[in-house]
Every structure is written in structure tokens, then in C-alpha cells.
Design a protein around this nucleic acid. Structure first.
Lengths: 251, 251
DNA sequence: TTGGAAAGTGTAAATTTGACACAAAGCTAT
DNA sequence: ATAGCTTTGTGTCAAATTTACACTTTCCAA
């Protein structure tokens, strides 16, 4: 479907876009999929930005977020959660930002309000797509990011906070892991999201007590140390658990 | 400041509004400030709606929410938190909804995306304002609401959930109470937000242990039973508490 | 065969939670 | 004045949870 930008009076009508914070986990640390906007004259701000696009008039907000995710990663049916809306009137102020906006067919003079989402992607399933803006996408460790274009750094911060809260309440971390994973991987994942060390034995005890993991009769292969048992997340058992009113992992 | 609606091509440019879920507490139960849209022909949907308005082009989202709150209640400096953005393309479908939109100067044919906020108001400070849309505002117990105009019921639900989560993590409940309050009132407040009974003695023990209340040397007066001691929330002590990494009340 | 590296495992002390009942204080009505 | 009503305010014990902490096992590689 084609959309042509049209001039109009902007007084009460901002552009509305959707930006996605796409989290991944490389089994070491939490990462985010960022777009490199390319060479930008010095003094014109960060090159890296969150993937995003204007919403179409026939889709709702969730659909727009899924579309962006699909175009960029080829994945659908991905865990997706809204972070919130962001939109200072002076959000866009750099010339380079205006150029960028034109490239996604937004009115460069218009105010842009953006609705941010975060999504959790099993990094192993990610394959770079052909879509133009996906060419320069890359996974960057969250801990290494200290600036982004527009207000995207603020959005990333908000997304991290949301994720941190959510993981204390729901077992969404599994969306970042391969179907079969080790307890140590899960442990590292929780540590990097909560951004604090967790005692190994206590973590294992707590997770196992919840009884939402299926232990496979299968071991890691080819690791230069004692191989770990592999586990699967068990959706049904988690459903049973929620029936009991459970809503707190106690991290 | 005057804003006149202008015809334009809507393809990529929805109206953006802000709606507020204004919570109060009448010392018995949680309430919400709703607008009665007046007589509506039968079959045209609920009369009651959340207060809201289009955003102006020179204000950010938080400012818009504060403005709506101020116009409606005369209060500012009120606890305010974003719930999120809502906006299905077919959100507006009833004739009565279109009429209502005109009255707030929105394009009745346009798609409307709304950013929802919730705020916590000490009900005792509320005085009805002269603003036109404030004429028919009223506090309605949350438990009695089972339908609202547009998608406002869904928004209310989301706001309740957010509040429930937040109060487990931060002592924001005090924003709903008068400066001096009793432990029983605080107890009732937590019960109505969490929507479950809490043991009286255990609740008191837990709250007092946190050491964020100042016990006044003052009693309730004029109550037909043993008068309660009055307490104040102590911001400084709460700040000390957060320094320790505390972020969980354990409810 | 040995060395390196991560997996996997148990206990004891401290803290927190949950369940539970009755006396004290002030108002009201007589 | 007093009897009755209503809500406040308080302690303990058992069970569950949390925290801190170190050594053996298993596989791979050299």
C-alpha cells in the first residue's frame, strides 16, 4: 500500500509513529536491535536510532508495531508490550532528523508523537531482512548504549524499566531464549535484565520450585566443561500456577 | 488560546487526545471522576465518559494531562502517571460519539488516538470548576462502573491495573488521602486498590516497620467510637528507604 | 592423564508471613 | 450515670521464605 505525504495545517494534528525497542539476548548480555542512519555531518547527533515508522490509517497501534517488527526481522508472533507515548513539541530539532523523517515519509516540519513498544526476540531466529531500513540494523549490547537519535535514549530507558518490572511478575524471559536452554543461561538473563547479581543456588532453587520448567533428558554438547541439562518452558504449568493467584517471582 | 478545526487529508494524521482517569478515595472506596455527557437517545451508548481533550500543538503530553486536570478540578501539582496510548481505527463509530467529538473541537470523521493518564487526587481538595465540561462531573465508585463511552472502560481497566502494580512498589497511596490520616483509612485504601482483604494487624505491622509515617500527637475528633491516632506521610524517610534499594512493599 | 571451566548440589540462621482474639476508648441513647 | 455500640490497637507462635556460603562432578582440550 502506498502512502503519499500531503501538506495540511498541523495545528491540532501531529504525525503519529511507532518505535520499537527490540530486545535480544546473546547468552551473555541484553542487546537491542538498532538502525544505523549512516554518515551524518559531525555535530548533528547520534547515528543510531530505534526502528520505527508512521502508523497507517487502517491499522491499530499493535498492528503497526508488529508490522515494523516483521519488516525488520521477518518475525511475527513475537512478544510485544507497549511502553507508552512520547511527544514533546520540540522533539525534532536537528536538520539530520528532518532528513531522516522524510525518508520514512513523515512531514519533516510536523510535530511527531510516537508510541513506543518493546519486544522480546529469540536472537537465534533473527535473520536480517531486505527492507531498506533493515540494511543497517545491528544488535548492540544495552550496556554500551549511552546516546541515541531523537528522544530514543529516553524511550530505551523507559523500556528497560518496564521490562525489569514485568519480569518480576511474569515469566516473559523465555521469549529471549531458544526453546531449549540451560538454567545458567536463564540465570544470566535475569541478572542482565534486573541489572544485579543473583546467587546461583538460590536462583535455581526458586525457579525450580515454581515448577514451570520441563527438564529434558538432554545435555549440552560440545562445550569445554561439564555440559548442562537442557530445559523447556512449560506454558501449561505456568497457567496452572497463575490460577493460584501467583503474580510475583520475588526478585 | 483558540483552536479551530480545519479540514485536511487524514490518511496519516490522526487527532491526538489525552484522557484522564482521575482517582479519588472517599475513605470507603476508590472512585473516579466521570463526565456525564447528558441525555443521549437510547441505543446510543453510555452517557458517562472520562474527561479528555485534544492536545494543543505547543504542549507536551504531560502538560495536556495537567491542563485537563486543572480545568476540571482546579488542582495542579497532582500525582500523574501515563497509562498508555489507545487507538483502534474504528474506535469512533456511534453518531453520539461524533457529536461529542465536535463539542471538544475534534474532527468527527477523523481517527482519534488517545493517550491515557491516571491521577491521584485527595478528594477533599476537589471543588467543582466552572469549565463547561466540568458542570456534569461526579465521583463514581470504581466498583459500580461497568460501561463507559468509547473505549473508556478499557482505559479505566488498564489504569486500575497500573495503579495496582505501582502501589506495590511505591507509596503513592498517600496522594489519595488528606495530609493527616489514620492507619485504618490507609488500610481500606490498600484493600480497595488491591481489591483483596488484608489482615489488619499484619498490615499495620508491615507499614509501621517501613518507618515512613510520622505519628502525630493528635487524635480523631467527633467519631462515635474510640478515636484513632493520626499520621502523616514522611517524604524524607521514604527517600532514605529508597537509598537502600527498597522497591517492594510485599503486598 | 591432567588441567581448566562451568554445572550442580545442601544446610543453618535470620527474617518474614499468616493466622488468630480480646481489651480500651470514645460517643450515644436512655 | 451507665450500658451498649463501634472501631482502635495490640502479641505470639508456627510455617515459609530468604540469605549466605564451598566443594565435587563432568566434559573437553592439550
Amino acid at each position: 500500500m502506498q502512502h503519499n505525504p500531503i501538506k495540511f495545517n498541523l495545528e491540532l494534528n501531529p504525525n503519529v509513529s511507532v518505535d520499537c525497542v527490540i530486545f535480544g539476548f546473546d547468552l551473555e548480555q541484553l542487546t537491542v536491535l538498532l538502525i544505523d542512519r549512516g554518515e551524518i555531518p559531525s555535530g548533528f547527533g547520534p547515528r543510531m536510532a530505534l526502528p520505527g515508522n508512521l502508523i497507517y490509517d487502517n491499522e491499530n497501534l499493535d498492528m503497526a508495531a508488529n508490522r515494523i517488527l516483521d519488516e525488520l526481522t521477518g518475525l511475527n508472533n513475537i512478544y510485544l508490550e507497549q511502553v507508552g507515548a512520547f511527544g514533546d513539541p520540540d522533539r525534532i530539532h536537528k536538520e539530520s532528523d528532518r532528513e531522516w523523517l522524510k525518508s520514512i515519509r513523515a512531514e519533516p516540519e510536523a510535530r511527531v508523537i510516537t508510541v513506543a513498544y518493546y519486544s522480546l526476540v529469540p536472537i537465534s531466529k533473527y535473520k536480517p531482512q531486505a527492507a531498506s531500513f533493515a540494511k543497517n540494523a545491528d544488535w548492540i549490547p544495552v550496556s554500551q548504549i549511552n546516546e541515541l537519535a531523537f528522544d530514543h535514549f529516553e524511550i530505551l530507558q523507559a523500556a528497560k524499566d518496564k521490562l525489569k518490572q514485568k519480569i518480576k511478575i511474569q515469566p516473559i524471559g523465555f521469549n529471549l531464549l531458544p526453546a531449549k536452554f540451560t538454567l545458567s543461561q536463564l540465570h544470566r538473563l535475569y541478572e542482565s535484565i534486573l541489572d544485579k547479581p543473583l546467587d546461583k543456588r538460590n536462583f535455581r532453587r526458586k525457579i525450580q520450585k515454581l515448577n514451570i520448567l520441563t527438564s529434558l533428558r538432554e545435555k549440552q554438547r560440545g562445550v569445554p566443561h561439564k555440559p548442562s541439562l537442557l530445559y523447556e518452558f512449560n506454558e501449561e504449568k505456568y497457567q496452572e500456577l497463575t490460577q493460584t493467584g501467583f503474580d510475583n517471582f520475588g526478585f
